[in-house]
């Protein structure tokens, strides 16, 4: 009797997970399929297979500019926000001080603020200091958004460190900087690379803030909206597929780095 109920529950759960995956991925997969479809309008039955839309995108200098901007922004944001995130996480691990909780709340705050508010605030602020519409305006805005993610990932790793490792390095003649270089950074390396991938992915995908502060230096999500506003163009599906594959690759690498390292550590 019980086993039958258990089987039913298991089946229900599997069905639920499959449904969630369909719900999340169906639009993306549809867009991918239509990116190879020769018909101009997305309709069924499908037309013939084509790479035409990829060719159009490939030959569009505006798209290339946007990809270039996006890559510059993503790489810079990846490095900057991982550095800031590492410093914040290390401060949390190493020191105890008054108002530490307040410090942590502030450090983790940006992602909890609605994007549109951050975007408007950034725009107003950059306009005031005469820095709007620059490529590095987007870098700064995205770094603010992404640092908390980097901090969260690196903090998770630091929580697993044996608290005696750093003092052991000092005990063996390492100054605080040397211990940081030879012990803390190597220990956090998987998390640091993961944080970099994750923040690059977030920056690469981000639209709202980029749309407000990028000016003429459009990023890929901004150019997608621009193309979409002009007409319905299956180019979008091609760009969308490219963006999805890029982001997913980064996120999956990040996820693998965070999870694959875990069992090894427990045995040390």
């Amino acid at each position: 009797m019980n086993t039958r109920i258990d089987k039913l529950i298991t089946a229900g759960l599997i069905l639920y997970v499959v449904a969630v995956f369909i719900f999340v991925f169906a639009p993306i997969i549809t867009s991918m399929i239509f990116s190879f479809n020769s018909d101009r309008f997305a309709s069924i039955p499908l037309g013939s297979f084509t790479l035409h839309w990829y060719e159009t995108v490939y030959n569009d200098p505006d798209v290339w500019d946007a990809v270039q901007t996006s890559i510059i922004v993503a790489v810079s944001v990846g490095i900057l926000s991982t550095f800031i995130g590492f410093c914040t996480a290390y401060t949390d691990y190493r020191y105890s001080f008054r108002f530490k909780n307040g410090y942590l709340v502030l450090a983790l705050l940006p992602p909890t603020i609605p994007l549109i508010i951050i975007a408007l605030a950034m725009l107003a602020w950059f306009a005031r200091i005469g820095a709007s519409g620059q490529i590095w305006s987007v870098v700064i805005a995205h770094t603010v958004l992404c640092s908390p993610f980097a901090m969260a990932v690196i903090r998770l790793r630091l929580q697993q460190i044996d608290l005696d490792l750093e003092p052991a390095a000092w005990n063996l003649g390492a100054s605080e900087w040397v211990a940081m270089r030879y012990v803390i950074v190597p220990f956090c390396k998987p998390a640091i690379v993961a944080a970099m991938c994750l923040t690059m992915a977030v920056s690469f995908d981000e639209f709202v803030v980029a749309w407000f502060v990028s000016g003429l230096n459009k990023t890929v999500p901004v150019i997608i909206l621009e193309i979409l506003q002009g007409n319905v163009d299956p180019q979008i599906n091609a760009i969308g597929t490219f963006v999805f594959v890029t982001s997913m690759t980064l996120v999956v690498i990040a996820q693998l780095l965070v999870t694959l390292r875990s069992p090894k550590r427990s045995s040390t």
Partner: peptide, 17 residues
């Protein structure tokens, strides 16, 4: 600590993994 040369064998060994 770095300038003392008084190395320690730790209870949990603290070897660098």
């Amino acid at each position: 600590p770095a300038d003392r040369n008084t190395p320690m064998v730790w209870q949990n060994l603290a070897l660098f993994p």
